[in-house]
Design a protein around this nucleic acid. Structure first.
Lengths: 146, 146
DNA sequence: ATCAATGCAAAGATTTTGCATCAAG
DNA sequence: CTTGATGCAAAATCTTTGCATTGAT
């Protein structure tokens, strides 16, 4: 049993939703690629290897479901498509450095704003469940090249 | 003369690009709506009022140009379209609280990570030119309602 | 039996592109 | 005149939806 299965299955069942073979395969794929930021099409291709009858529309529907249920985080790196990252255990995202020259995305693992969250919540009367930071600039290679 | 015109015109000219009437009108519109996050279509509609012959494709092309030239920041609030915000003077963005229930976007004016930027730059060998924080959660109204 | 989930194809929406024309240096 | 910019329409993407069918509970 994959480490995510129990909790996700439960939280789906609570809402009368099912963990179908298709959804399980998608979950497996995004778990096994937890370092990547796969697009819907890429997930579709990978899932097809183990579940050839799946349709692209199902992947789109499932990713929307997983986004609503906070199983994944939906990223936008300005390449025209949504990209997804599984949310594991701790409920906060990690963050990204995005090179504006070559588009490379580098993960940042720090807990950047844990201290600030409470302050902002109070000041703006807003209940923060997650946050995400994107840093834009030049990666090491492009800085030397440009 | 609008306060942005000088610098932007210069930085365009340096690259052999022109500040045409269409581009100037777009600039006027996004400057006059600096509190908003207008979509391309919305910009198009507003620009048409003062420049009726403009085509939608020109607005798309111009917004891409302005994004590359760092005249605007291209936002994604997961509503299916890109939304733009003019970048004025100080080169850092402000940040946003996004309600996952109703989609409301609230501006956060704090300087959140100025102290952390240098640290991250060193640690990841990355030259940060801008950053953006999105906080997700429930706004005051939705928290009471849901 | 019921109700959600699926696959497929069609439709929708946003964004990009090809091309002839226009405008400025 | 040369080169970028424009407008229009067509094309290209990505994403959603309608509908008949399937599959669990």
């Amino acid at each position: 049993m994959k480490p995510y299965s129990k909790t996700i299955k439960d939280s789906l069942k609570e809402k009368g939703l099912k963990l179908t073979p298709q959804r399980r395969s998608i979950l497996d794929v995004i778990y096994e690629n937890k370092g990547e930021h796969l697009s819907t099409e890429e997930i579709f291709e990978l899932v097809k290897e183990r579940c050839p009858e799946i349709g692209l529309a199902t992947v789109y529907r499932t990713m929307n479901l997983f986004d609503r249920e906070k199983v994944v985080y939906k990223h936008n790196f300005n390449d025209g498509k949504s990209r997804y990252e599984i949310i594991l255990g701790k409920n906060r995202q990690h963050h990204h450095l995005i090179c504006t020259e070559c588009g490379t995305v580098i993960e940042v693992e720090e807990d950047l704003l844990e201290n600030t969250v409470l302050e902002i919540e109070r000041k703006y009367s807003f209940n923060i469940t997650n946050y995400n930071v994107k840093f834009y600039g030049l990666c090491d290679i492009c800085r030397k090249r440009v």
